[in-house]
């Protein structure tokens, strides 16, 4: 009897310990959720500082043509910003290319403003003492789709190609660790260490919440980050080579992910750890 009691106690302890990580996870996630709610209103989310800076940049005259970006067509007509981000990436006939917001902004800087984008690309990701025009512009423009639903166009053959290649890339394994996006994001309820991983392999709530919350203000980085940065960081952790900024595989993955996230509400800039 004594042994049985000790055994039961031991089993209870073991069960408690195995539950501990899950409890820690729940507690920290709740805390993060509370923190997010506290600072996600426009008055206290630092991401809105980027929105304000982006608004100034959008109207600023630059480049050899000394004009603003206000005639840049993001897909819904020259200068129309409301809802444009919700329907990107998309095919642009004038460039004969499917572009995400960042590719399109670079195209407009070059073609509308006559701006040499070398410096803008160099500052694509902000750092201490280095502002990023791209992050600020994306924050401003994406915020103009606040409360709208993700509605990425998939009618044009090039848009369909992007979605198909994006899906292929999602499952393509490589690098010294043989990792693909799917290694971490194709099963429900999994986590790395204590970090929960959204399953992005099936359309629905998880891809909707994920894609509807980028761009985001990353508290740990003290910066507004875009999907370009998120995927750059994924490839870094996948042990893949450095992906070229605003290049086609990144856009293809974004099209695929937005396809999975179709109908998800856009709530940006959001705030994340």
């Amino acid at each position: 009897m004594k042994h049985a009691a000790a055994g039961t106690a031991l089993a209870a302890i073991l069960l408690f310990l195995s539950g501990l990580a899950a409890v820690a996870q729940d507690a920290s996630e709740k805390e993060i959720e509370r923190y997010r709610a506290m600072i996600s209103d426009p008055l206290s989310n630092p991401g809105y500082l980027a929105v304000d800076r982006g608004e100034v940049l959008w109207a600023q005259k630059r480049g050899t043509k000394n004009v603003s970006l206000e005639t840049c067509d993001l897909g819904l007509g020259a200068g129309k910003l409301e809802g444009a981000f919700a329907q990107m990436p998309r095919f642009f006939a004038d460039a004969s290319k499917v572009m995400d917001l960042e590719q399109r902004l670079l195209w407009c800087m070059q073609n509308v403003q006559g701006l040499d984008t070398k410096d803008v690309v160099m500052r694509r990701f902000s750092g201490p003492g280095r502002a990023s025009d791209m992050e600020d512009l994306v924050a401003y423009i994406a915020n103009k789709s606040l409360g709208m639903k993700i509605d990425v166009p998939l009618k044009h053959p090039k848009e369909q190609e992007m979605a198909a290649i994006g899906e292929e890339l999602f499952y393509r394994r490589g690098g010294v660790m043989d990792f693909s996006c799917a290694t971490c994001h194709a099963e429900d309820g999994k986590r790395i260490r204590l970090q929960g991983l959204p399953n992005l392999s099936k359309p629905g709530k998880l891809p909707q919440e994920t894609m509807g919350s980028w761009p985001t203000y990353r508290v740990s980085q003290g910066a507004l980050r875009t999907m370009q940065h998120r995927l750059w960081d994924c490839f870094r952790q996948q042990r893949w080579p450095v992906p070229e900024y605003a290049s086609d595989s990144i856009t293809a993955l974004t099209v695929f992910l937005n396809k999975q996230a179709m109908g998800g509400e856009i709530n940006v800039p959001s705030i994340k750890r």
Partner: peptide, 10 residues
């Protein structure tokens, strides 16, 4: 086509 995409990015 997949290779072309991979090349464009990496």
């Amino acid at each position: 086509l997949v290779d072309a995409y991979v090349k464009s990015t990496f």
